[in-house]
Design a protein around this nucleic acid. Structure first.
Lengths: 131, 131
DNA sequence: GCGTGATTACTCGGATACAAGATGTCCGAGTTTGAGCGG
DNA sequence: CCGCTCAAACTCGGACATCTTGTATCCGAGTAATCACGC
């Protein structure tokens, strides 16, 4: 029950993009270098973020990645859902007659975490970091 | 980022033991049958719970598993920690100069979930279920 | 009746097999920028 | 000076390779209760 490394890469990269906040896209090479990842692997991760509509890619020379939305709209949850998927962390496959009460409690617990992640924005971190 | 099936087995088995609440231990075969798992696999899971001090095993004929503590002391978190381990769900390996702010937020979020799981007791489910 | 041993019903733990997912690499294809070259 | 072409600098996406982890099985060993047997 752990978050994948890809999520960590995604969060750090998004933070970098938010901090940069320029109109000009930033190349994968530059992003990858600061996190010590291969460019090909990072680009695979960023493609997921792009599909989720968080960032967009500009191909060709001088290409790279750039935020799409307003940067203070991006939450931790957005990133995590883009990478890890949106399915629940706990699934009870058994066939009890009724709804599984254990699963119900687990989902409530999960919601507590998701709620916090939904309230926390990447841009807040960027502000803290720059000070 | 999902809970393992083993955790589900562990939770259901513990619930069964709490509901039974007899002094006499319950055999793995009986427990496994109700969840459609092999006895050998389930016993492996229960060994973890035993090591965590939540249940104890009685070997030999008429043997099986039985709760050790008072049943209203057992929380969801106890079970989950016993099976999944106690390490954090999010680890940032990078070497930033300072503490990683992203990791800090992620751990706060995780704490929200753990807090809920710590407050929720198995015996509560047992009561709900019997009504 | 009573001890003693064998049998039976269990759990325990290590070794192993298998599948799925996470992690990462390679390479060909498409796309934009910019430089070079000819008119 | 303008437009065309071509190379360079990029990203995109699929196909692999690898490693770890979860899931599960098998089997020999140990252990406790029970039964059988002989004294």
């Amino acid at each position: 029950m752990k978050f994948s490394k890809a999520t960590n890469y995604a969060l750090h990269t998004t933070l970098a993009l938010v901090s940069a906040s320029s109109v000009k896209p930033i190349g994968v090479q530059q992003l990858a270098k600061s996190q010590d990842v291969s460019t090909t692997y990072l680009s695979k991760i960023l493609t997921k973020l792009a599909k989720a509509g968080i960032i967009e890619s500009a191909s060709g020379a001088q290409g790279g990645y750039r935020l799409t939305r307003n940067k203070d709209e991006i939450t931790f949850l957005d990133i995590i859902h883009a990478i890890e998927g949106t399915s629940s962390m706990f699934e009870c496959d058994f066939v009890h007659g009724e709804e599984c009460l254990i699963q119900a409690e687990m989902k409530k617990a999960e919601q507590k975490m998701l709620q916090y992640l939904k309230e926390t924005k990447i841009v807040d971190i960027a502000h803290k970091q720059s000070t």
